[in-house]
């Protein structure tokens, strides 16, 4: 059972569409997370590295939202292409592999570049962080991750961080609930 398909058809409400950008370094689990968020019958069996980007659509029940997620490739070659889609995004999911201590600085760099981009800089756009792969024993806690990324310095955008295990789907619901609340307040 997917997380977002409960009330959708039942209420027959007209959905609001929200575009979400899913960013983060390669191998952090973006595609796996998005796959988990899709209704179970649409989930892919095996996840292969994303080349370029891929668009996934699914609906949320609770808030009658229709999510269009731009799942971007995190490989170095493609990261500078993210910006083509910044204008598009009304929310951002930023995924961090919390077991990858070595590349935490790279993730921070990418995050800084994101925040200084003119299409993002002055927008109050909600950002959800997943400190993913929490199941691995060398994984850092979400608090540690947010320290390393200096999230406390983010002043002009609502943000939230959750630890997650994308393979089992743990921690995802909490994050998505937060994101929906943000979008709702933003829209009304």
């Amino acid at each position: 059972m997917g997380l977002f398909d409960k009330l959708a058809g039942w209420l027959g409400l007209k959905k609001k569409e929200v575009n979400v950008l899913c960013l983060g370094l390669d191998n952090s689990g973006k595609t796996t997370i998005i796959n988990q968020l899709k209704p179970s019958n649409a989930q892919a069996q095996d996840i292969v590295p994303t080349i370029g980007f891929s668009i996934e659509k699914f609906k949320t029940s609770r808030d009658s939202l229709s999510f269009t997620v731009f799942d971007m490739s995190g490989q170095g070659r493609y990261r500078n292409l993210w910006e083509h889609y910044y204008k598009e995004g009304q929310a951002i999911i930023f995924v961090i592999d919390s077991s990858d201590k070595l590349r935490m600085v790279v993730a921070k760099e990418e995050l800084d570049t994101l925040f200084s981009h003119p299409d993002i800089k002055h927008r109050r756009i909600p950002i959800l962080f997943f400190a993913n792969k929490m199941d691995l024993k060398e994984a850092l806690s979400s608090v540690k991750v947010s320290q390393l990324l200096c999230l406390e310095n983010i002043k002009d955008k609502p943000w939230h961080i959750c630890a997650s295990n994308a393979i089992k789907g743990e921690g995802l619901q909490e994050g998505v609930d937060w994101l929906q609340d943000q979008i709702r307040t933003m829209r009304t």
Partner: peptide, 12 residues
């Protein structure tokens, strides 16, 4: 430039 950006969309 960078037309490979659509690779995953097309493989899908």
């Amino acid at each position: 430039e960078d037309v490979i950006i659509v690779t995953s969309s097309l493989t899908k």
